[in-house]
């Protein structure tokens, strides 16, 4: 196990790049904070993706340049944005109607844990007071599908993919794809299938760092970027 803990894993931008491949042309996408935020930098050429923000924006573009911030224009993470062509603004009820009504096609979120049946636990660590639920439960429940982008293990080396979540749940059975710094794993609501592994890693090694049983796809391959 110790040797696996030291073994080189994929950097965060490669994880983001792999997720970006999953976003269909013309789709409406909501990106959470952390690795998900980086996904927009890697959308393959020729595809147009429209980004939704809970702050009340469709078609979010690049961050504002320093010195050119408009104090009334922020994304869900509180970062200042540029105004771009085709942008639209709306209130919070409408921002969440887009999510809860299933109009947003894909949500990419970070997570503390994901279970074998696609349960998501990303809003709260135990013993952290009342917590910050924000829009996490709306996104987990409403979007047509959740892709989780995260590190394969936590800072103590414990698996973040587990048989049953032990942290407070955000939503049940909502995750359909997990992309980590070690693997791409499909989730059909009943179990997990290992589809791709990071360069230099074997499916058995990935399984050792995973807290749930992985079915290994017959055509399992190295990360495809």
């Amino acid at each position: 196990m110790e040797s696996l803990a030291d073994k080189e894993r994929l950097p965060r931008d490669i994880v983001a790049m792999r997720v970006a491949k999953e976003l269909p042309d013309g789709s409406y996408v909501n990106l959470g904070i952390g690795i998900p935020t980086m996904v927009s930098s890697f959308v393959p050429e020729g595809r147009t993706v429209f980004y939704h923000s809970e702050s009340g924006i469709l078609n979010c573009g690049p961050l504002a340049e320093e010195g050119n911030e408009d104090i009334d224009l922020i994304n869900a993470g509180g970062q200042y944005l540029q105004i771009i062509d085709g942008m639209s603004f709306f209130d919070s009820a409408e921002a969440f109607a887009m999510i809860r009504g299933g109009h947003v096609d894909v949500t990419v979120l970070g997570s503390h844990q994901v279970s074998a049946t696609g349960d998501l636990a990303n809003w709260m660590l135990p013993q952290r007071g009342v917590g910050n639920v924000g829009g996490a439960m709306d996104l987990a429940t409403g979007a047509s599908g959740v892709i989780v982008a995260m590190e394969h293990t936590d800072r103590n080396g414990e698996p973040k993919i587990v048989q049953e979540c032990t942290f407070p749940l955000t939503g049940k059975g909502c995750v359909y794809l997990i992309v980590t710094d070690l693997a791409v794993i499909e989730c059909d609501g009943h179990g997990l299938t290992l589809k791709e592994v990071a360069p230099g890693w074997t499916p058995e090694e990935v399984q050792q760092l995973t807290g749930a049983i992985l079915a290994i796809s017959p055509d399992v391959k190295e990360f495809e970027l």
């Binding site: 919070s92 009820a93 921002a95 969440f96 999510i99 009342v130 639920v133 709306d138 409403g142």
Partner: peptide, 15 residues
Amino acid sequence: DAELVPQGTLAERLR
């Protein structure tokens, strides 16, 4: 005291 509400539910409860 506190009541934690999902953001979309908060918006819809106000509406």
